[in-house]
Design a protein around this nucleic acid. Structure first.
Lengths: 221, 221
DNA sequence: GTCTATACTCTGATAGAC
DNA sequence: GTCTATCAGAGTATAGAC
């Protein structure tokens, strides 16, 4: 799902289209979508509400009818991103039979979403905004993601595919670190590349294989 | 080595110490050290030369006698960080016998340095500063680090400890991604923790073991 | 919900005296 | 190398009319 698709149905809209001559859309969603545009161009920490207002064809004070502060915009984007990421992974593994294949599908879906949503990924995983700390509500979907992952690991253990050790803190830490590492390296060093062509994402299957090799039932502890 | 140690011998100096009453030190190094302080407090992208000048007890224009622009400060810090990181890893493996143990020592040293220098790590690995692109000179030590890593992998292959496949792009990508992933997760989610206590760095040996398990000679391709 | 007007603070950077 | 003075601009946020 694209950035625009996450926020609202903004696909096909030209950036400089005037506010008046446009079909009525949810202003709140538009603020978030344009904020993402600005963050993509100026850096995640470079969001300026004045610039957002400029692009919307309104004056900065008008934005404060929708968001109490700049951090409130960040928080809304954090919540939205965490939710979208979780939903993307959950949707990808939905209906699959338990086992390593399902686990790998989730692994891939997570990386896929991050590469497709680099701005939100940076906000979620890198915390590049000085004073901003996400609210508990915004952070909530992350716990769901961890639970989903733990469930997937449990299935693999139950099926005899992975050792029990993977269910501890270590397994979760390694799995998320591997995702984070591939995504971070890719976005930092080769931002424009796609999932298949990226110098790092290209080897995501090898990364997953490493994880499995370490925890495979029958391998050394 | 501490941040202060990297830049110059500033250990034990109190932050508010006046400029006049202090033993003469290299102003250039002091600018960089205080810049790191500010970045640590305000975020990497939140560096303000005015704030640096304030803490040094001088006026902002004076800084421009040493650095042509704010990006020049970032670039100097990038160069310094890349060099320090490389040197830390090189020093750790210096004199060790070739093999997996040497490789793991480098792996650990890299993570160790990053956790000990979170601000420089963010600058080097996350690119959180909007317009800033490091110069070729600043970036140079990174190539040395890659060469050192490649050398270490070659030794392991020669010794029969790892499969030849590790020498391709994939091996380098995975190794650096694993380091980056553990460090990123640790710094983003539990910034204050140390190497041994961190929820993610605590499992760095398991991450290395995963890498080895995947490429171990005799394991499945 | 939008506007005008405004208050306030901060920034990076330059010119030129000393 | 330091200063004063200054530019030229950005930003967040609020008050209050409409």
């Amino acid at each position: 799902m694209s950035v625009a698709g996450i926020v609202a149905g903004r696909a096909g809209e030209t950036p400089r289209e005037g506010r008046r001559g446009r079909r009525r859309r949810d202003t709140l969603a538009e603020i978030l979508a344009i904020s993402l545009d600005v963050m993509g161009e100026e850096g995640v920490g470079g969001l300026s509400l004045a610039e957002v207002a400029r692009r919307m064809g309104i004056k900065p004070p008008s934005l404060y009818k929708h968001f109490a502060s700049k951090d409130a915009v960040y928080d809304a984007l954090f919540a939205l991103g965490a939710r979208a990421h979780h939903d993307a992974v959950a949707a990808a593994v939905e209906g699959m039979a338990p086992g390593l294949e399902r686990l790998e599908t989730g692994f891939e879906a997570s990386i896929d979403w991050c590469i497709g949503n680099p701005v939100l990924t940076q906000l979620l995983f890198w915390r590049p905004v000085p004073g901003f700390v996400p609210s508990a509500e915004a952070y909530a979907p992350t716990a769901e993601s961890i639970a989903l992952l733990h469930e997937g690991l449990e299935e693999c253990v139950a099926a005899g595919a992975l050792r029990e050790q993977v269910l501890g803190e270590e397994g979760i830490a390694l799995f998320t670190s591997f995702v984070s590492g591939i995504v971070t390296q890719q976005l930092a060093n080769e931002p424009g590349a796609g999932l298949a062509s990226g110098r790092f994402t290209r080897h995501r299957k090898a990364a997953f294989a490493s994880f499995v090799a370490h925890y495979a039932a029958g391998s050394a502890p």
